[in-house]
Design a protein around this nucleic acid. Structure first.
Lengths: 187, 187
DNA sequence: CACCGGCGAGAACGATCGTTCTCACTTTCG
DNA sequence: CGAAAGTGAGAACGATCGTTCTCGCCGGTG
């Protein structure tokens, strides 16, 4: 496990620390220690902490959305069922140990006002997620407004689960989404 | 305007800076300068930055909920209309200059993992808001599950409006809330 | 007048952080 | 073998932060 790509080892350590404690609360020396690197090698791969933060957010965005899409497509069934599977996946995520909300919302609140690349990463992540939901909603034959509604529910569930430390927000959001979706499909 | 209570002047400066830039991004010297105080007087009123952060969150919670409740009660009408007025108030808030999302979610993401008092303040704020919505929902004669759904929509709208910098999330959430509420009242 | 407690202004202090540098050692290649 | 280049380990550097201290000044009291 220790012979992996150095970049991967660094990003693994950075992700766990940044996500779990906040970006500003984690020093570069903590990343170095957790990744088993020397300072020189760490700065060879990421010339500044900003570069590391950007890479952390970029990789997390790709993995997060790929994991969601994988779960939904494996769930199969008609588009309506796939949409509801989004909330099932959220429930699994919320129940993971160390879950602490959306990494992009957290970093946006912490650094969005001072670090434009962080604000852009958060915006991009949310746009991509909204677009993904919109695709499923369109496939289900519901109007675009429904996609926005379902996205708001997911967003609210993430925040609520994080602050309350309670994964049941996923099931609540799923139920509300089902009601909205069925109403939109019946109309 | 400069003869106000020193505590108020400090908290006003701290709130603007902490909310606008993030807590860790603002040094005590910036709070001192913005409040027109000397270091000695600043530390006389708040013996540590933690105390100031706690007071900032506490005051903001009270004011935020009072402003919301004031708007809703001034809106009057049946409980259903009052519930929808919650989202109108959100829309006004989102459109304020300098709006940057929920102060409690932001501080939770930044310090929740390392500063228990911040995590507790965020939890308390969200619990109070959820309880307030639940009271309106009960008055409207809808089941408690509807209150959770409407709270998730509001939460999602706040985050979405912040990250996208777009106040229309309030109207979207209002529309979804109306659909859920009418369905719950019809059933 | 002489003394004293408190104030404003800002320097000072110790800690921490991001980043770079030192230095001894190893490896590589002619 | 011997010079050149790169590495690991960690010290060093400069900046910043939270917090405290110094110092000169002022107003009130005996």
């Amino acid at each position: 496990m220790e012979h992996e790509d150095p970049r991967t080892r660094i990003l693994d350590a950075a992700e766990e620390l940044f996500y779990g404690q906040g970006i500003q609360a984690v020093g570069m020396d903590a990343v170095r220690a957790a990744s088993g690197m020397t300072m020189r090698r760490l700065y060879q791969h990421f010339p500044s902490k900003n570069d590391l933060v950007e890479a952390y957010l970029l990789r997390r965005d790709g993995r997060w959305r790929a994991s969601l899409a994988g779960h939904v497509s494996r769930a199969g069934g008609p588009p309506r069922e796939q949409l509801l599977a989004v909330y099932d996946w959220l429930g699994l995520w919320f129940a993971e140990p160390g879950f602490r909300g959306c990494a992009f919302v957290n970093s946006f609140g912490e650094l969005g006002a001072t670090t434009p690349v962080v604000a852009a990463a958060a915006r991009h992540h949310k746009e991509e997620f909204g677009g993904y939901v919109a695709g499923l909603v369109e496939a289900a034959g519901a109007p675009p407004a429904t996609a926005v509604h379902l996205t708001l529910l997911a967003e609210g569930a993430i925040t609520t689960a994080a602050v309350h430390g309670d994964p049941t927000a996923a099931a609540d959001a799923r139920e509300a989404a089902r009601l909205l979706l069925d109403a939109a499909l019946a109309g």
